[in-house]
Design a protein around this nucleic acid. Structure first.
Lengths: 245, 245
DNA sequence: AAGTGGTCTAGACCACATT
DNA sequence: ATGTGGTCTAGACCACTTT
């Protein structure tokens, strides 16, 4: 008989895995667990909190604690390669992976001194002038991604890249017109738990990590022209990469 | 004056950011927080627990709670492309990113019925026979990655791929000898919190997500020959991808 | 021996959702 | 009005590390 929060959480996890509580189902509440397992309310709450912290369940105050499901957006970083040669195997994800439209919001542009990591990626000295472009992406009214990119101010000052609306084709098309077309990319991907502020800005439920992507864009002669730091809700995204050899 | 666990955690976070507590430093203990902020021991402990859950700090029972640092291994998925054309920009990570050697441990091989996701990725019917190869990777005695790969049993049964030691060049060299050389790859990357069992097997501290990678390997004619599910400690790894166009 | 984090009880109050 | 999760107090015991 489970007697502490972890054991009760394990027990509930087993009942979830067995199908007793399918995705979306409401788990037994704190009073029910107090009765069933004979523990204090804080302990029962602790068991539910473990499942929430693992991303298995989501608490809805005033209503209950519910089993979560994972229906990711697939972010295909190498979208340009022809799909035909990869077509034979289906995705590992179950069929109902979404392809909902992304909306852009809150575009911010400013010129400032480069932070250390951006200077490093762009091959500049710390404090050199850069143009910073910030934006957020929204799906179904829910923010799922925020992005900040830095470009050398010497390169883009006075162009449309330094304005909120970069015009048709976006930043990369403008860079091409400047003779600095980005042709190769490097992405560094890590995952971590969000700070309280980040969790709020992405509206991620507790127990959801964020994915942090640093993408550096290079010209044909290997010059870095942009570094882009993206923060994604790991509960909403799967990152897809393809490569050869 | 901070009065609840979240506010105390925010206050401590600010003192960490200000440099008062650098990486590795010991944070004020529960009794100290009880004195300083005038709250109960459980509330003080709750504040430290918030920082631990965010991956900012790590508790060492009997000793104290310490500020964590991030020194990742870089996993370069596209190692084969020439480095020269990417060389200009340095990494966004601070200089002391590690390149320690990986050790392999606990190799397991068996033949069984394909689980649903592996069958989907390999273009098989659910329950078709596959060979499963499991292994774990250790760095400095600490497990940082576990991997399970599945291959169609019809293809590899009776070969060294179905044995623990695959011989020089490994699985991919053997596949090449079978006329099924993998030449293109697709990786799906997601992040989530580990289950209690996964946290133990990877020895990840609380507040550390795991990165789950599904890599499918294709032959030149687009036939999937292997799907590999990797589980990585997100506190130990950065994933690096490069691509063109 | 003293100090640390970890966890539990029992009771309380709150804001909120549902009925 | 009732039930829900969220959080706090005050006190207790435990296993562990450090001195």
């Amino acid at each position: 008989m489970p007697e502490n929060a972890q054991q009760i959480a394990d027990d509930l996890q087993g009942r979830i895995d067995s199908g007793e509580f399918p995705p979306g189902a409401r788990l037994p509440g704190e009073p029910a667990l107090v009765r069933q397992y004979g523990v204090a309310k804080m302990t029962a709450g602790g068991a539910l909190k473990i499942l929430v912290a693992e991303g298995v369940a989501q608490a809805r105050p005033g209503s209950g604690t519910y089993v979560r499901e994972f229906k990711p957006l697939v972010r295909d970083a190498v979208r340009r390669l022809s799909r035909s040669q990869w077509a034979s195997g289906a995705s590992v994800w179950s069929a109902d992976v979404d392809d909902r439209p992304l909306d852009v919001a809150d575009v911010e542009v400013e010129e400032l001194a480069a932070p250390a990591w951006a200077a490093r990626a762009l091959g500049l000295a710390e404090g050199d002038a850069v143009v910073r472009r910030g934006r957020r992406f929204v799906v179904d009214g829910k923010p799922v991604q925020s992005a900040v990119s830095y470009l050398p101010a010497d390169l883009v000052r006075g162009t449309r890249i330094a304005e909120p609306d970069t015009g048709p084709g976006g930043t990369y098309k403008r860079l091409e017109e400047l003779g600095s077309a980005p042709v190769s990319f490097e992405e560094d991907v890590r995952a971590r738990m969000p700070s309280a502020a980040e969790a709020e800005s992405l509206a991620v439920p507790a127990g959801t990590p964020v994915i942090e992507v640093y993408r550096t864009a290079f010209t044909a002669d290997g010059r870095p022209v942009e570094v882009n730091r993206m923060l994604l809700d790991a509960g909403s995204y799967v990152m897809r990469y393809r490569f050869e050899s």
